[in-house]
Every structure is written in C-alpha cells, then in structure tokens.
C-alpha cells in the first residue's frame, strides 16, 4: 500500500469513527460503532430515523465539528459516509 493511500484511509477512518460516535451519542442509539455500517441509510430502510432525529443529528454534527449543515442538503444526511464526505469538503479534520 502506497503512503498516499495509507494516509487517505487513516484520515478518513478517523473522521468516520468520530461521526459514528457523535451520531450514537446524540441520538442515544442502542448500537456499538461496529454495529453501524458506514453506508447504512439513516432514514426509511436502514436505521429508520425520523425527521426529529434528523434535527437532533444536525445539531450534534454542528456542535461536534463546528460546521453549519443546511437543512436543504438531503444528500448529506443519507449515511455516515455521506456525512463524512460533507465534513471533508468543509475541510474538517477528525480532531476538531
């Protein structure tokens, strides 16, 4: 594995881990981090979250990472991975 790929994976996994922790704690999910697949859909199929959960999650993410997450960005709140994509686009590092 090249150093570049190693760095990509290391940084991404650290951010994903932090997103999972924020999600589990802010929504009081009865899940351990390894019981939450990174691509599981958050609403409907998948975790079955609702609109109140969405607002709670937005507040949790904003507080944890110091970003503003507009409510009109439905592609962000699809999975742990799509939230991590958004945070990376905003230049967020896992250790905010």
């Amino acid at each position: 594995m090249s150093p570049d790929i190693h760095d990509i994976i290391t940084n991404r996994l650290a951010l994903v881990s932090k997103v999972k922790d924020v999600m589990i704690s802010s929504l009081n999910l009865e899940l351990e981090p390894d019981e939450l697949a990174e691509d599981s859909q958050l609403f409907g199929f998948g975790l079955g979250l609702d609109s109140i959960d969405a607002l709670t999650l937005i507040v949790g993410i904003e507080d944890a990472f110091g970003v503003h997450l507009p409510e009109d960005m439905p592609h962000v709140l699809r999975s742990v991975n799509t939230m991590a994509d958004f945070l990376m686009e905003k230049g967020v590092q896992h250790a905010h």
């Binding site: 990509i8 991975n81 990376m88």
Partner: peptide, 8 residues
C-alpha cells in the same frame, strides 16, 4: 485494509 471511501 482497503475498505474505505476515497481510495483510488
């Protein structure tokens, strides 16, 4: 080891 988003 490679199971991560963003890997070329």
């Amino acid at each position: 080891a490679y199971a991560c988003v963003g890997v070329p």
